[in-house]
């Protein structure tokens, strides 16, 4: 069986500064994986370089056994909320419809079938009543759910989410993690960049612990031990203390 994702000897730099070095790991299909690490560890960079949104210096990456170019339509990517222009003149429904574009191709427009599907995806994240709102009128958690609905609309095998839980309310967070778990249970592979150690053990099956290089990749139990965390987080000890207390 081919892996969902294999990374071998990946190096990435920004303007000559090394951002990631010597990263190798592989992820089986049907898993829900968190990418964690301190600020500046290169978590988002890893996600972007896997998709070739930024250039790689070195290394081989395969997704579903192929080069990323060949499987782009099998990958849904949810960017960080801070990267979106929320004043853009677009409605919630139209935003979700964007998710149908990759499979429509250039000269086709979304028709009734796509609109129905977009409504269905909105329903899954509980945002159907807001379909006709402009996206800037929503709260942060609602915006994030709309973007998850857009990813669902893409009907892909793999989902990449960059910091989906930053600045959102608890109930949205619960809705989102519930849907991600359902996706995993239906055979999809989900990678989530996550900033917060405290809930990592509840949310994910496996963790990629990163600090410019791969500190550890493994099951939650293997990664969430104080030694590993200390190694990745170094000086950020307040984090570590919380971790030890809750983990004990």
């Amino acid at each position: 069986m081919t892996c969902a994702l294999t990374v071998n000897d990946l190096y990435v730099s920004y303007y000559g500064n090394e951002a990631l070095r010597d990263i190798s790991f592989s992820i089986e299909k049907q898993s829900l994986v968190g990418i964690i690490g301190p600020n500046g560890a290169g978590k988002s960079t890893l996600l972007k370089s896997l998709l070739k949104l930024i250039p790689r210096d070195k290394g081989e990456v395969t997704i579903l056994g192929k080069e990323v170019e060949q499987v782009r339509k099998q990958i849904a990517y949810v960017p960080q909320r801070s990267n979106i222009d929320w004043d853009f003149p677009i409605s919630v429904l139209e935003t979700v419809l964007l998710g149908t574009y990759p499979k429509l191709g250039v000269f086709h427009r979304p028709k009734k079938r796509e609109r129905m599907w977009a409504h269905e995806c909105l329903e899954k994240v509980g945002m159907e009543p807001f379909a006709e709102r402009q996206i800037g009128e929503l709260s942060g958690g609602q915006q994030q759910r709309v973007f998850l609905a857009r990813a669902l609309a893409q009907e892909t095998e793999i989902f990449f989410l960059d910091e989906p839980f930053v600045g959102i309310d608890i109930s949205s967070e619960e809705t989102i993690i519930q849907i991600l778990k359902e996706l995993r249970d239906s055979g999809k592979t989900v990678l989530v960049v996550h900033h917060d150690l405290s809930k990592s053990d509840e949310y994910f099956d496996e963790l990629v612990l990163l600090n410019k290089e791969l500190v550890r990749y493994g099951t939650v139990e293997e990664v969430m031990n104080p030694k590993m965390i200390a190694q990745a987080y170094g000086g950020q000890l307040s984090f570590l203390k919380d971790m030890v207390v809750t983990g004990a």
Binding site: L51, L53, R72, K73, I75, Y77, P79, N83, I84, D85, F88, I90, T95, L98, Y101, P102, R150, Q154
Partner: peptide, 9 residues
């Protein structure tokens, strides 16, 4: 609206 998404697909 979302150049990262369009690039990613």
């Amino acid at each position: 609206f979302d150049p990262t998404m369009s690039q990613s697909y």
